[in-house]
Amino acid sequence: MRVDGTVAAAGDGAAGECAVEGWGDVVAVAAGSVHAARNTGRSHSVGLRADGTVLAAGWDAHGQCQVAAWRDVVAVAAGWRRSVGLLADGRVVAVGRAAEGACDVAAWREVVAITAGDWHTVGVRADGTAVATGVDRFGQCAVQGWGQLADVAAGYLHTVGLRRDGAVVATGRGDAGAGDVAGWRDVVAVAAGSHHTVGLLADGTVRAAGADDHGQCAVGGWRDVVAVAAGAAHTLGLRDDGSVLTAGDDAHGQRAVTGWRCRTG
């Protein structure tokens, strides 16, 4: 997302998920997660406009791009085969595949942050507690005991919570080490990929834990970072000068961001 409200995209684009050239007045973006082992051509992108309406592009086999009627949205998230929107009044809406329960958010109230993994959806309430729905085979929805949360991030089979004191908690499948975040401190933002977790520290440096088979955790030298994002097997960092750092898998051109100058606010 550029400072002028336009959007740039890189990657496979086979399903039209990179067709965002005409988007404008956008204040937030989200990309549908696709586990690294899956075929490409099954992804979508979502954009939140300043007026609270939502745009979507890409794979729509389950209706995950049917967001044109949404209003008063203040945040968006995109999972595999679904889109999630946080409304100004704290309610949550979702469209897309409902079979696994990841879209069962209609009863949620007083939510202030949302995230969407491949198979589950998680929200943070105003009181700092969390709520989750969807597949819980590996305990990725076991967030009931969490408190004092500021934000959350959902990956393929794990969930990460950022506490207001800068500490990080995790639940779910941890065989690749994506949940090894117990010692992290002074974190101001978190992101979750398929099997790795990324944390942005207050001093602008970045930490990562979990699978590193594509070098997606090679972020130790990053500096002056103000935002982070994690794809299936790659990691992005937005620097305070608007440039973008990348690490990890580039098989589909998802790291082809040289020359981008994006929003830093």
Rank of each mutant, 00 (worst) to 15 (best):
M1A: 12
R2C: 05
R2T: 00
D4P: 05
D4S: 11
V7H: 02
A9L: 08
A10P: 07
G13H: 08
G13Q: 03
A14P: 04
C18R: 13
A19Q: 12
G22W: 07
G24E: 11
A28N: 00
A31H: 10
A31V: 13
V34M: 11
V34D: 14
V34S: 12
N39A: 14
V46L: 11
G47R: 07
G47N: 07
A50T: 08
V54M: 04
L55C: 12
L55D: 11
G58M: 09
W59C: 11
A61L: 14
G63Q: 09
Q64Y: 05
C65P: 07
Q66T: 14
Q66L: 09
A68I: 00
A69N: 13
R71P: 00
R71Y: 01
V73R: 01
V73K: 05
V74H: 04
V76N: 01
G79W: 06
V84A: 05
L87C: 12
A88D: 14
G90Y: 09
V92M: 05
A94M: 09
A94C: 14
G96W: 09
G101Y: 10
D104Q: 14
V105P: 03
A107V: 12
E110D: 15
A113R: 12
A116N: 03
A116P: 05
G117N: 06
V122E: 00
V122N: 01
V124Y: 00
T129D: 07
A130P: 08
A132M: 08
G134H: 03
G139W: 08
Q140I: 01
C141N: 10
C141I: 04
A142K: 14
V143T: 06
V143I: 05
Q144G: 14
G145L: 02
L149M: 10
A150N: 03
A153M: 05
G155W: 01
L157E: 13
L157Q: 11
V169A: 14
A170L: 06
G174D: 15
G174R: 07
G177C: 08
G177M: 04
D180V: 06
V181I: 02
A182Q: 10
V188K: 09
V188D: 03
V190I: 13
V190E: 00
A191N: 02
A192L: 04
G193T: 00
L200R: 00
L201Y: 06
L201E: 11
L201R: 15
A202F: 06
D203N: 15
T205P: 10
V206Y: 00
R207K: 13
A208C: 12
A209S: 13
G210C: 04
D213G: 15
Q216A: 13
G221R: 11
R223V: 15
R223S: 15
V225D: 03
V226Q: 08
V228T: 05
A229I: 05
A230F: 04
G231W: 03
A232N: 03
A233N: 10
L236N: 07
L238T: 15
R239D: 12
D241G: 10
V244I: 12
D249R: 15
G253E: 04
Q254G: 06
Q254D: 06
T258D: 15
G259T: 07
W260A: 05
C262N: 02
C262G: 12
R263M: 02
G265R: 15
